[in-house]
Simulated scan of single mutants.
Amino acid sequence: MSNDFEAAAAEVKTFTKKPTDGELLELYGLYKQATSGENTSSQPWAVQMEARAKWDAWTANKGKSQDAAKAEYVALVNKLKPSYA
C-alpha cells in the first residue's frame, strides 16, 4: 500500500491542470492523515482562512487509520487523474 500511496502522491504533482480547491483540500486532508496521523495542532483562527481550511480538511479524517487514509488518497488520485493529468 505504501508504494501505491507514494506513487499517487508523486502523480498529483504531474497533473497538468489544477484540481478545484475542494479537491485539493480533500487530497491535503487525506495526505496529512496518512503521513502524520491524527491532527493534534490547535485550530487556527477563522480569519486565517487558508490555514483554517487545511486544518478542517485534516480534522475531517479524524479516527481514520493511516492505512485507510492512504487507500482513500490513492482512490481519489485515480478518480481525479482523467480530469487533470
Rank of each mutant, 00 (worst) to 15 (best):
A8N: 02
Y31V: 04
V77T: 01
L76I: 15
V77A: 06
K17T: 11
L24V: 05
V74C: 00
V12K: 10
M49N: 10
Y73S: 01
Y84R: 05
K64P: 04
S2D: 08
R52P: 09
N3H: 10
G22N: 02
K54R: 11
K62D: 04
E72K: 01
W55Q: 06
Y73N: 10
Q66S: 09
A68F: 07
A8R: 05
R52A: 10
T59G: 00
E23H: 14
T35M: 01
Q48R: 13
A34S: 08
A85N: 12
M49K: 13
T14A: 12
Y31R: 10
M49D: 11
A57Y: 14
F5Q: 00
N39V: 02
D56C: 03
M1K: 09
E11L: 08
L80A: 03
D4K: 13
A68K: 12
A57V: 14
T16W: 13
A10P: 14
G22I: 08
R52S: 10
L80P: 11
D4L: 12
K62N: 07
M49T: 15
Q33I: 03
Y31Q: 10
V77N: 01
F15I: 15
L24M: 10
K13C: 06
A8F: 06
T40M: 01
L24D: 05
E38N: 11
E23N: 11
A68P: 13
M1F: 07
S41D: 08
G29D: 09
T35S: 02
Y84K: 10
P44F: 07
E11N: 11
Q33A: 00
N3V: 14
A68Q: 14
L80G: 09
L27M: 05
E11K: 12
P19R: 03
G22F: 02
T16H: 11
A10K: 14
E23G: 12
P44R: 15
L25I: 08
T14K: 08
V77I: 03
T35E: 08
K70W: 04
R52K: 15
A34I: 06
A7W: 02
V77W: 04
K70S: 04
T40N: 00
E23S: 09
K81E: 03
V12Q: 00
L25G: 08
L24E: 04
G37F: 02
K18V: 06
R52Q: 12
E72A: 06
E50C: 11
T40E: 00
S83G: 09
K64N: 05
L80S: 05
M49L: 15
T20Y: 05
A7N: 08
Q43D: 12
K18M: 05
W45L: 15
E72R: 00
E6A: 12
A60P: 10
L76E: 01
R52E: 03
S36A: 10
G37M: 07
Y84E: 02
A46C: 11
S41L: 11
W45Y: 13
W55S: 04
A9E: 07
T40R: 05
K81F: 01
K70H: 07
A8C: 05
S65T: 15
A46M: 12
D4E: 15
N39K: 01
T40Y: 00
E23D: 07
K64D: 03
Y73E: 02
Q66R: 15
G29R: 14
S42Y: 09
Y28H: 14
P19I: 04
